[in-house]
């Protein structure tokens, strides 16, 4: 059970994982659109008072995914001694973003504006924590996706993963910011 929750890539990778992952990202974008929330980075999730056009929600997902795949694939090509396949790296990393669907669901219960301490109710804190747990789950899945698809194990893999995740986060955050007309 634990393996299936945290490392489903032992059983599923490649094209099937990619198709499922893309479906998941579209679902997260739709939930974000209807719940007036959005993802503007690999690890970022925010509420938006007026909501965003659907095409921006979808474009955010595409940008985040591309910004994630590129550094991890390059790292795999550089550090792995195995013959890695792009379809495995993209497929597993796409599937690893699955928990973002649940994070997007929590967006329905979060207020768009928090103006003071009075707005931070126990329910809001609980939902934010639940959303945070899903983000941690996504990070754990992403690590296993990288480790399995690129065959990089041990302490080295953790350092490489952290560097790639930081590059992905910064580049995705920057590229997403270009989408918003006011920025």
């Amino acid at each position: 059970m634990r393996t299936k929750l945290f490392n489903p890539f032992i059983y599923l990778a490649g094209g099937k994982a990619l198709a499922l992952g893309i479906a998941g990202m579209i679902m997260a974008a739709l939930l974000g659109f209807f719940g007036h929330s959005h993802f503007n980075g690999v690890l970022d999730f925010h509420k938006f008072r007026d909501g965003l056009p659907l095409y921006i929600s979808l474009a955010e997902q595409a940008i985040i995914f591309l910004c994630t795949v590129v550094p991890f694939y390059v790292a795999g090509r550089v550090f792995s001694t195995s013959q890695i396949r792009l379809v495995d790296v993209t497929g597993t990393l796409a599937l690893a973003r699955g928990p973002m669907i649940l994070t997007a669901v929590t967006g329905f219960g979060l207020p768009a504006d928090i103006r003071g301490l009075a707005d931070i109710t126990a329910g809001v804190i609980a939902l934010a924590l639940v959303g945070f747990v899903f983000v941690i789950w996504m990070v754990a899945l992403s690590y296993n996706a990288f480790s399995v698809s690129c065959n990089i194990k041990g302490s080295n893999s953790v350092s490489i993963f952290i560097v790639c995740l930081l590059i992905a986060e910064i580049s995705a955050f920057y590229c997403c910011s270009l989408l918003y007309p006011h920025s």
Binding site: Y11, A13, S82, V148, N151
Partner: peptide, 13 residues
Amino acid sequence: LGLSYPTVRNMLD
């Protein structure tokens, strides 16, 4: 084996 391609490739490696 009911496993993914990269898992089997990693086992081979």
